[in-house]
Design a protein around this nucleic acid. Structure first.
Lengths: 223, 223
DNA sequence: GTGTATTCTCTACAACCATAGAATAAAAAA
DNA sequence: TTTTTTATTCTATGGTTGTAGAGAATACAC
C-alpha cells in the first residue's frame, strides 16, 4: 500500500525492520523522471493534454505505474510546478552569485526572460500554472511565495545599485520592482504565445533599454 | 434543425417565405446573455468549472438550451473571449478619443490595467484564454490580431508623443512598445493572481513612474 | 532453483463531459 | 379555440478521465 520513498529526501539507509529489503528503483529519482515527462507533455500539448495516461506513456510506462510515486494527479502537477520554480530560482542564484547592483539585476532578469527554448517552454508551463493557481488555494500559496522571493531578490540588488550610483532615477523602489516583475511576467506570456516573433535579441534590447532608463544621466550622455 | 438567427447581425425583417413566423427571442441578444453567464462562471470558478451545464444553469436554462445559439462549446468560448477583447478595445477607443501623445498613452494603459473589479475579472478570463490559445490555432490568430492591434495603437500615440517632445528618451520605439505591452500583460497576471495586494493606486503609480521615465529631462527637473 | 518483496501492466469502474435528439411547453396566428 | 412554429427541457449516448486493485513480470536473497 504505502511506498517506501520519502516525499523529498532520498533515504538511502536500509530499513532495519526484518532483513534486507531489495529496493530496485530510486523513488525520488523516478519522481523526477515523471516530472520531466510531465514537463514535456505540457510544453507540447498544453495542460489539457497532460492526462495521467499521456504522462505515463511519455515516461515509458503504462497507466497505473505512476500511483506508487504520485498517489494522485494533483500531487504530480503540484510537484512538477514546484520543480520548475526551483530550477528557475537555482539558475538565478547561480547567475547572480558574486554580482551586485545593475549587473545582478541584469543577470536575474536574463534568467527569467524566455531567451532560449528551455525558458520558452518554462513560460508555456507557467501559464497553465497561473490558471490553476487562480482556483486552487495551495497553488496560490506556492505562487505567492515565489513571487515574494523574486521581489525580495530584486529589492536587494536594486538597493545595491542605488548605493553604487547605478540607479539615480527619482522613483520609488516599489514601483521599479513592480515594473520589473511585470516586464518579466509579461515577457513570458508574449514569448510563449508567439515565439519566433519575439527573438532573444529583442527581449535583451528591451531589458537593456529599461535598465538604462534607471540612470537618466547616463542615458542622456550616451545619446 | 437550423436556427433562424444570423450569427452577428440581428435580422428584424420577417422572412417572406410562407406566412409570418413569430420570433420570440432575439438570438443575438440571447447570445450576449449566455456570454455574460460564461464570463461570470469563469471569473468565479475558473475555466475548468465552465461546463455547458454550469453555464446554462448560470444563465437560468437547462442543459441543452444553449445549442440553438452556440452549436458547440468551442464556439461559445471563442465568442466569449472575442467579446471580452472587443469590450476592452471599445473602452480604449472611448478613453483615447480626442487625446494625443502621452495623455493618450496614459488613457490606453489605464483601460487595460486591472484597476477595478471588472477589469480584474477580465484579467482572470484572459489567462485561461492564453492557455487555450497556446494549443488552439484559431484562438492564437485571435490573440495575435489583438496584440498587433494594441501595438499599432501604442505606436501611433508614441509617435505623437515624440513629435510633441513628451518623450525624449533615446530608446527605439519598438523597445518602448514592448515594455509597455509587458507591463500591461504582466500587471494583468499580478493583479489577477493576488488582488488586494496590488491596489489600483500602486498600479497607477507604477504606470505614471514609467511614463515619466520616458522624458528624463522632465524627470530630473521634478526631483 | 526456490521464495519473496517489489514493480509494473492491465482491466475495471464510477464520475463527468459534450453532444444529440425526442418529447414537452409556450406563444403567436388563424 | 385550433393549428403551427418556436423554445426549452429532459433523457440518452459515446467518449474520456482519475483512480483502484488484481495479477503477471521482475530482481534479489538464500
Amino acid at each position: 500500500m504505502h511506498h517506501k520513498g520519502s516525499s523529498h529526501i532520498a533515504r538511502s539507509a536500509p530499513p532495519v525492520w526484518r532483513n534486507e529489503l531489495p529496493k530496485i528503483v530510486n523513488h525520488d529519482q523516478r519522481r523526477l523522471e515523471l516530472v520531466d515527462a510531465t514537463w514535456r507533455i505540457i510544453a507540447q500539448h498544453g495542460i489539457e493534454g497532460a492526462t495521467m495516461r499521456e504522462i505515463a506513456a511519455e515516461a515509458g510506462f503504462a497507466n497505473g505505474a505512476l500511483k506508487p510515486y504520485f498517489p494522485t494527479k494533483d500531487s504530480l502537477i503540484t510537484f512538477a510546478f514546484g520543480h520548475v520554480f526551483n530550477r528557475t530560482n537555482q539558475r538565478i542564484a547561480e547567475r547572480t552569485a558574486g554580482k551586485v547592483g545593475i549587473e545582478a539585476l541584469h543577470g536575474f532578469c536574463q534568467e527569467v526572460l524566455p531567451l532560449d527554448e528551455d525558458r520558452i517552454n518554462e513560460a508555456r508551463i507557467v501559464i497553465p500554472f497561473w490558471q490553476k493557481a487562480l482556483t486552487d488555494a495551495t497553488k496560490t500559496e506556492l505562487h505567492e511565495s515565489s513571487m515574494h522571493q523574486w521581489r525580495a531578490g530584486l529589492q536587494v540588488h536594486l538597493r545595491q545599485a542605488r548605493s553604487r550610483g547605478e540607479v539615480t532615477v527619482p522613483i520609488k523602489d516599489e514601483d521599479i520592482i513592480n515594473q520589473l516583475m511585470c516586464i518579466l511576467l509579461g515577457a513570458q506570456i508574449i514569448a510563449a504565445m508567439s515565439p519566433g516573433e519575439h527573438l532573444p535579441a529583442q527581449l535583451n534590447a528591451q531589458l537593456d533599454a529599461y535598465l538604462l532608463l534607471l540612470d537618466p544621466a547616463h542615458a542622456i550622455e550616451s545619446r
